[in-house]
Amino acid sequence: MIVSRFKKLRSAIVATAGAGMMGILPTVAQAEWALNLQRPVTEIARVQYDLHMLIMYIVTVIGIIVFGVMFYSIAKFRKSKGAEAAKFSHSTKAEVLWTVIPTLILIAMAVPSTKALLLMEDTTESDMVLKVTGYQWGWQYDYLEEDVSFFSKLATPQSQITGNETKGENYLLEVDNHLVIPAGKKVRLLLTAKDVIHAWWVPQLGGKKDAIPGYINEMWIRADETGTYRGQCAELCGKDHGYMPIVVDVVEEAEYMAWIEAQKNKS
């Protein structure tokens, strides 16, 4: 009797809590619970992804071994089970072993990492140059060869941020003017900033790079597939740091040509 009443109460609590969660989370429909890096669409991002997975597997195995030994000891060598303490306090063999083996693992990790780095830093033979300038709070893009230049700022309305309006699908990841680049072309980015340090980062296109006032940094991307990719500023740059997204449209070359012509005529 009491038990069944308790059960009823419990299911009622679960139901209300569940409903409450639904209400709070406008996003349940698109709940992602994403666990890993975003799907890479450039060579660099793919190399980073593979390296990340490799290191993560190695690290997981090391973790399992350490935790395994620890939990085994906890289970086995407890006084309550009558374990007698041994007296040993060192073992040269063991100590050499657990210095040498990690060293070998580290060397094994360093090789692919070095290769990946060499690839990322190779900005030669690019097909086009794009200058990216960070400012508080948005980005300016210059297509150097084409004399096309425009600003790109957050397009999410304030009412969505303050909660007076339902948040859209790409809340905080939408801008007024998208950056457009052709697929399959090596694009060299020159990064700089007007006021404070920013960092340009679109996870699917590869790593981030700082945009520093007074200096020019470079990175390159070559997107394999068309699509729209979103990212954010990744270096604290003041009040609206959380509100300076990046949206890149990767399009077929012909489409890109048409777009750039249209932009030229605009200005």
């Binding site: 030669t124 690019s126 200096y215 020019i216």
Partner: peptide
């Protein structure tokens, strides 16, 4: 030898 392009930027 591997450098093919140099960019000079003024701020």
């Amino acid at each position: 030898a591997e450098v093919k392009t140099i960019t000079l930027s003024y701020e």
